[in-house]
């Protein structure tokens, strides 16, 4: 059961997401995480799906995705050299003496405080998922 990151270029039509999500649930494939956004060409969307399965299952996932009429391109990013980063935004309660401690922690892990209220911080962190 290997972890794979599948990147899908798909026509940016309403319902595109449900076609992909529906395919995964109908055929019993895993979705661990999923992101979608329009590309620099706004008529296309990029979907990035984190999934897992045996080689046979992965072969079927790619073939079935390619079969969707709206799908332009499917790439299994895990097959080649690639960079993985995750971004995290956390809102934390920061009052009293914790407030100072919070700030130090964020600095140590090279996190950035990007929003401040009297009682909270919003901290931004990026890195490999193990670090986060």
């Amino acid at each position: 059961m290997l972890r794979h990151i599948i990147s899908i270029l798909i026509e940016n039509e309403s319902g595109a997401l449900s076609r992909v999500a529906g395919l995964f649930s109908a055929r019993g494939y895993n979705i661990e995480s999923l992101t979608v956004a329009p590309t620099e060409d706004p008529s296309l969307s990029r979907m990035t799906i984190l999934t897992s399965g045996s080689d046979e299952v992965l072969e079927q996932i790619t073939k079935q995705l390619n079969k969707l009429v709206d799908v332009v391109k499917v790439v299994d990013l895990s097959e080649a050299a690639h960079v993985e980063r995750e971004l995290m935004l956390i809102k934390v309660r920061a009052t009293g003496k914790d407030r100072e401690e919070m700030k130090r922690m964020a600095d140590i892990f090279r996190g950035r405080i990007i929003d401040v209220t009297e009682s909270t911080y919003v901290i931004e962190l990026t890195g490999a998922s193990s670090k986060l």
């Binding site: 309403s14 319902g15 449900s18 076609r19 529906g22 109908a26 009429v69 709206d70």
Partner: peptide, 14 residues
Amino acid sequence: TVGITRPCVKHNFL
């Protein structure tokens, strides 16, 4: 209609 038929069509359009 698009939602109900999606799993049993090759493709559908609204």
